[in-house]
Every structure is written in C-alpha cells, then in structure tokens.
C-alpha cells in the first residue's frame, strides 16, 4: 500500500486541477438552467431542428426544457469529455512516466515485483477516477439542490454510473498502451479519447455507421439514450468492459517482461 499512497500523492495536483475544473463547469451549467427555462420553448425548437447536429448529440430524443434533459446534454458533454481526458491522461502515463522520468530504475531496484507495481498503480488510477466522479457527482447534486429543482435521482445516478463505465474502458485501453510506450504518452491518451468521442458522434449521425459505436467508449454514456430509455445499453457496456479487461491484462503481460532502460 506504500506505493498506492505514493502514486496518489504524485497525482494529487493533477487530480484537483481536473476535478475542480469539471465540477466548476458542471455547476455553472446547472446554474444556467433557471435562466434558460424562460426561453426554453424556442430553444428546444431550435435545438431539435439543427439537422444532423441534433442527432449527433441526441437532442432529438429528449426534452431539452426539463432539467435532466438539459443536464444530460450540457453537463453530459462536460463530464463526458473532461472525465475521459482526465482518465486517459493519468492512465496512459501511469507506467510510461516512470520510464520517461527514469524513476523506474529506482523503483524496481527495490524488493517489489512487477505485478505488485502494476497492481498498486492500477488501484491508484481507479481510485483517482472514482474520486473524481464522486466529487463531480456531489457538486452536481448540490448545484441542482441550490437552484431549487427536484433531483432526478434515478436518471442522474444512471448517467453518472455510465460516465464511470466509459472512463473505465478508456482507462483499461490506455493502461495497456502505457506498458508499451516510453514517451509521448499524453498525446496518445488524448488522441484515443478524442477519436472515440468523434466515432460516437459519427455513429449517431449516419445510420449506416452504427457499428462504430462498438469502437467507442462514449456509446455507453450517451446521455440522451440513457434518460429517454431509463437504462444502460448493455451490449455496449459488455463490449466496453471486455475491452478494458483486455487492456489491463495486456498491460500486465507486457510490463512483467519489459526490459527497463
């Protein structure tokens, strides 16, 4: 556990920068809602008549005038993208940064096994991702309470659960990649997150490219779908979690045998 603690300490600054930024923006978003409800009728109309852009963000499926509809689209984009970026950043660097900073030699010349190092790093990464989600969730609930709206517990919990699952898929993939690379990790992490985000948008727009959803972690956290159907799309969750597990196992296998230079 020494090492988990050490990892958490090392990641503390990044954690608070990302978490507070995401939470702050979500709160702003929620606070904007009462002001916008007045003009909501025209807004809903506008948003639902933007053609493919409307479909891309799923705005044809939900009522933009309700708090949860508004939240799913607006806050959903912020938490979806922000959370994915943060997760990608920390997990793609988790093994690679030791080699980039040349600290792996220091670490691995202590009596620790590689498996132990990977496991503790994994625990620390998941802990940071979960903590970020908990903080954002609490701030979000708090903000909704402040503006005096009733909290849509079921939908909002489901939505946030979906974000966590989406981030876990990204974390798994990036973790696996992290074992292979030595530098330039951040670019790869962000690249994957952005690529997946756009794959999902494309899949939403073009009917023929629906299959692309299987390649994107964002298909699990489609706010509009979740709010309108009241459930997660299990086939995407299943694929996503399988990919995450494959990524993690790959990371274990590669890092256990890797030559540390």
């Amino acid at each position: 556990m020494t090492f988990v603690k050490h990892e958490l300490n090392q990641g503390m600054k990044t954690f608070w920068i990302w978490t507070s930024s995401i939470a702050f923006m979500v709160a702003i978003c929620v606070f904007m809602f009462p002001e916008m409800t007045g003009e909501m009728d025209s807004m809903t109309q506008m948003f639902s008549s933007m053609g493919s852009l409307t479909t891309a963000f799923g705005m044809d499926q939900i009522n933009f005038g309700s708090l949860i509809g508004f939240y799913a689209i607006e806050a959903g984009s912020i938490i979806g993208l922000g959370g994915a970026f943060y997760t990608a950043l920390i997990s793609v660097g988790v093994l690679a940064k030791e080699e980039k900073d040349r600290t792996s030699e220091f670490l691995l010349s202590h009596p620790v096994t590689r498996v132990q190092v990977i496991s503790e790093k994994l625990v620390a990464t998941v802990a940071q991702v979960l903590a970020m989600n908990v903080v954002v969730f609490l701030i979000s609930i708090g903000s909704i309470a402040v503006i005096g709206e009733t909290i849509p517990w079921k939908e909002i919990s489901l939505l946030h659960l979906a974000f966590v699952l989406m981030q876990i898929e990204i974390a798994g993939i990036c973790f696996g990649i992290s074992a292979f690379i030595k530098r330039g990790s951040l670019g790869i992490g962000l690249g994957i997150a952005i690529l997946m985000y756009f794959l999902n948008l494309v899949a939403n727009i073009a009917e023929g490219s629906k299959f692309l959803k299987f390649f994107s972690a964002f298909s699990m956290s489609e706010g509009a779908d979740i709010v309108s159907s009241g459930k997660l799309e299990m086939k995407y969750v299943f694929v996503g979690m399988t990919v995450a597990i494959i990524g993690i196992i790959t990371g274990y296998i590669k890092y256990s045998r890797k030559d540390i230079s």
Binding site: Q10, D101, R102, E105, F106, S109, H110, P111, V112, T113
Partner: peptide, 21 residues
C-alpha cells in the same frame, strides 16, 4: 527469485533519478 535478490542488494545506479517534487 528476483524479489529475494533485491531484498539482499543495495544498488546505486550510474544516473540517479527521483520522483519530481
């Protein structure tokens, strides 16, 4: 038995790098 080996060894690398901060 790498772990046992490392328990018994002290190692000074030619270039030492530590965790920033």
């Amino acid at each position: 038995e790498s772990k046992k080996v490392l328990e018994k060894c002290g190692y000074l690398p030619s270039e030492t790098a530590f965790y920033s901060g």
